[in-house]
Design a protein around this nucleic acid. Structure first.
Lengths: 149, 149
DNA sequence: CTGGATCCGACATGATACTG
DNA sequence: CAGTATCATGTCGGATCCAG
């Protein structure tokens, strides 16, 4: 349904290094690159939030749903499945009458959280600069518009 | 979504921090948060690539287009506009007959590149683990499927 | 409670044609 | 060369119903 149905595991086939991707800067220009795929997953809006929350403690489905403002049931399910598939989140089902499913970060997921934190911190530290830049840009555009019109 | 309305508690209106978002972990549960917006922008597929490329040197529109495999002219334009608006990229137009427009990272953009690099490095270092996890997951699902069917 | 499955609309993105 | 404008479309994401 959500694409991704096939895994293919390309990467291992030819095109071993036609572009010379050992160059530390040339890592990502090709869209079929593994790194690109993972990056898209990892940088995903909801993934980021889920990982951030799970770092604190093990959480149940409904708890996550409640904590993440704006996420739908569907997206939470999908996101958790992806993270589980990528080995970032561990899913534990307790076979009791009222189903109880708990999610927690795997060690791998833990290392990712640390990295994500860096990005978040950067954003927090520079959000004012960005907001200012946006205002300036918008003002400039508006000025040009009224002048041109 | 706009849960603001429920916070009210007029009188002692401490709307400054109704959720206690000084908690370093509570940064992102609300979708209207500035950080969330910026994060979505910054973690964007194409933004990541553009920033990575511009860190190396100043580039022209067509050069970027050529270097980024799979990007359409439209998306490159849109991405560059966003980055410019956010003050991450500087756009310089040389008023000559064959239009020459050059893009380069601003100092702010430079700091972001550094941060992004961390994320990319993490991905590169763990892509094998993730690939393995995916294979294991898919195999497990396939097994369950054939068993259940 | 925890999802799986489906339908459907909104929006992002791609392709194409046109302009300065 | 460096876009803008327009149209077509595919995917994402939300709402809903249903099952274990």
């Amino acid at each position: 349904m959500e694409t991704e149905g096939t895994v293919e595991t390309e990467g291992t086939v030819e095109t071993a290094d036609p572009y010379g991707d050992t160059d530390p800067f040339q890592w990502d220009t090709r869209e079929d690159c593994q790194v690109r795929q993972i990056l898209d997953r990892v940088a995903d809006k909801w993934s980021l939030l889920v990982i951030a929350l799970l770092d604190r403690r093990c959480l149940r489905f409904t708890e996550l749903r409640r904590e993440i403002d704006g996420i739908s049931q569907r997206m939470l399910t999908v996101t958790l499945r992806q993270l589980e598939r990528d080995g970032l989140v561990k899913r534990t089902v307790h076979p009791v009458v009222p189903p109880r499913v708990e999610y927690e970060l795997t060690p791998l997921g833990g290392t990712l959280h640390h990295t994500i934190r860096t990005l978040v911190t950067w954003t927090e530290e520079h959000q004012n600069e960005i907001a200012a830049a946006r205002s300036a840009y918008d003002a400039r555009v508006a000025a040009e518009e009224s002048a041109g019109a």
